[in-house]
Write a protein that binds this DNA or RNA. Structure first.
Length: 287
DNA sequence: CGCGCCTCCTGTGTGC
DNA sequence: TGCACACAGGAGGCGC
C-alpha cells in the first residue's frame, strides 16, 4: 500500500529515469486505469505523443510528471496496488499492465501496472504548480512549506476520532493506514481519541511522529507489506521489519511487552498496544 | 457543510 | 479438493 514514503521512492526513480525523455507512443490497455481522464483514452495517448518530460513532482500520495508544453502534467495515483515500472521494451508483460509509454530514445518503457485498479493516470492542467486533480490535497509533512502550527490547530478543531483526521488528505496528506497506526503508537494514542481533546503539545507531537516515521521509512526504501509496492526497478522496500504496530497482531509491544491487538475500525483494521494506547474515556457521561 | 458510510477491484488465505 | 467468503484499503461520492 503506497503511502508518502513509497510514492516518494517512485518519484525519485522517475526523476532519474524519465527526465528529458520524449514520449514516442502511449497505449492504454485498460480503460478503468484512465477513468479520471475525462476526454478518454484516445485523447490521453494523442496528447502524450511527442511530449518531453521536464519534472517529477509529488504532493502526499499524488505524483505527476510535468511536460514540455508548460501547462500539462501526467498525474498518477497508485491507489492500493499501482506500480510505475521502468522496464526494457521487450520485458514480459504481466496480466495487470494498464498503461504503457514508449520513448523516442528506444530505452526503457514506463509501465503503469495495477492489480486492483484503484490507481489511475490522467493528463491534467497545472495551476499554481499543482495539477487540478490534486488541488484539494493538503501539503504533506515533508513539504518545505508544510505549516505544522496551522495543521495542528486544524486537527484540534476536528469533531472526529484522531485516526480519521490523520487519514484525511485535505488536512495533512501522505498518511495512510500503516503510518497512521505507527504515529499513534509512537505517541501512545488510541485511534478513537477525539481529535478535539488533544492538547496543542500532543497534537504537535503526533504530527511530528507521523513526519518522523515517514522520513525513516523513506530512508529504508518504504514498506512492502503486501509485496505489491515496489520501486521503478521492481525492488521492495525494507521498512516492514521496523514497523512497531501495523501488522503485528499478537506480537509483543516493543515498549511494554503486551501483545498487540488488531481491531476492526471504519471498515479497516487498526493495530494498537492495549497497554500503551488505552481507549479514551467515554464522553457521554452525565454531568 | 462537516462527518462518516459505502463502493470500486482482484488475488490471497481460510474454513467447511 | 473445491467452493464460498472474508480481507486488504485510497478516496470520491453521497446521505444525514
Amino acid at each position: 500500500m503506497p503511502e508518502l514514503p513509497e510514492v516518494e521512492v517512485v518519484r525519485r526513480g522517475l526523476e532519474r529515469g524519465v527526465l528529458g525523455r520524449t514520449v514516442s507512443a502511449a497505449e492504454v490497455l485498460h480503460p478503468r486505469a484512465v477513468r479520471r481522464h475525462v476526454p478518454g483514452p484516445a485523447d490521453l495517448t494523442r496528447r502524450l505523443k511527442g511530449r518531453t518530460i521536464t519534472g517529477a513532482h509529488r504532493r502526499g500520495k499524488y505524483l505527476w510528471l510535468t511536460l514540455d508544453d508548460g501547462e500539462q502534467a501526467l498525474v498518477a495515483h497508485l491507489g492500493m496496488s499501482g506500480q510505475l515500472l521502468l522496464t526494457p521494451p521487450n520485458a514480459d508483460v504481466g496480466p495487470h499492465l494498464r498503461v504503457r509509454l514508449d520513448f523516442a530514445d528506444a530505452g526503457s518503457q514506463l509501465r503503469f501496472v495495477d492489480q486492483r485498479t484503484f490507481g489511475w493516470v490522467a493528463l491534467d492542467e497545472v495551476v499554481a504548480g499543482v495539477p487540478t486533480s490534486a488541488a484539494h490535497i493538503a501539503r504533506d509533512p515533508l513539504d518545505p512549506n508544510f505549516d505544522l502550527a496551522s495543521v495542528c490547530a486544524d486537527l484540534r478543531r476536528r469533531r472526529s476520532e484522531v485516526k480519521r483526521a490523520l487519514l484525511d488528505q485535505t488536512l495533512v496528506s501522505g498518511i495512510g493506514n500503516i503510518y497512521a497506526d505507527e504515529a499513534l503508537w509512537r505517541v501512545r494514542l488510541h485511534y478513537a481519541t477525539p481529535a478535539a481533546s488533544l492538547s496543542a503539545a500532543r497534537a504537535r507531537s503526533l504530527i511530528e511522529a507521523a513526519a518522523a516515521v515517514m522520513t525513516e521509512a523513506l530512508a529504508r526504501g518504504g514498506t512492502s507489506f503486501d509485496r505489491l509496492y515496489v520501486d521503478v526497478e521492481g525492488h521492495q522496500g525494507w521498512f516492514e521489519q521496523s514497523l512497531n504496530a501495523y501488522g503485528r497482531e499478537s506480537e509483543p509491544c516493543r515498549r511494554c511487552g503486551r501483545l498487540l491487538r488488531r481491531e476492526a475500525w471504519a471498515n479497516r483494521s487498526s493495530f494498537r498496544c492495549p497497554q500503551c494506547q488505552r481507549p479514551p474515556r467515554t464522553t457521554n457521561r452525565p454531568g
